[in-house]
C-alpha cells in the first residue's frame, strides 16, 4: 500500500485513526507492517502490500 492510503482508512471497529508502523518498504510501497487503532489498540497486519482491516473475528474465516 501507498502511505497516502492512511488519509482514508480507519479502524473498522470504532472508526478511530490508525497508527502506521512500517516493517518493509520498497520504492514508496509499504510491503509489510502493522496498523494500530489509536483508540482501542486493536492491531491489523499489512502483508504483501495489502492492509488487512477485517475485524479480528472475520480474519481467519473461510469464505462465508
Amino acid at each position: 500500500m501507498k502511505e497516502d492510503l492512511m488519509e482514508i482508512i480507519c479502524c473498522p471497529l470504532d472508526k478511530h485513526d490508525l497508527n502506521l508502523e512500517v516493517t518493509e518498504r520498497d520504492d514508496g510501497e509499504i510491503l509489510s507492517g502493522e496498523l494500530t487503532c489509536t483508540e482501542c489498540s486493536e492491531t491489523f497486519p499489512i502483508e504483501d502490500g495489502i492492509p488487512n482491516l477485517l475485524p479480528p473475528d472475520m480474519r481467519d474465516e473461510a469464505p462465508a
Binding site: M1, K2, L5, E7, I8, I9, C10, C11, P12, K15, D48, G49, I50, P51, N52, L53, L54, P55, M58, P63
Partner: peptide, 28 residues
C-alpha cells in the same frame, strides 16, 4: 474486498486495495 484472492488480483492490476468488510475500514 473480503476475499484475499480478490485483493491480490486487484493489487496486481494496479488498484490500491484494502482487505475489509464493505465500507467498515474507511473514514467518514
Amino acid at each position: 474486498d473480503v476475499s484475499p484472492l480478490a485483493c491480490r488480483e486487484a493489487a496486481d492490476n494496479g488498484v490500491p486495495v484494502v482487505r475489509g468488510d464493505l465500507v467498515e475500514p474507511f473514514q467518514r
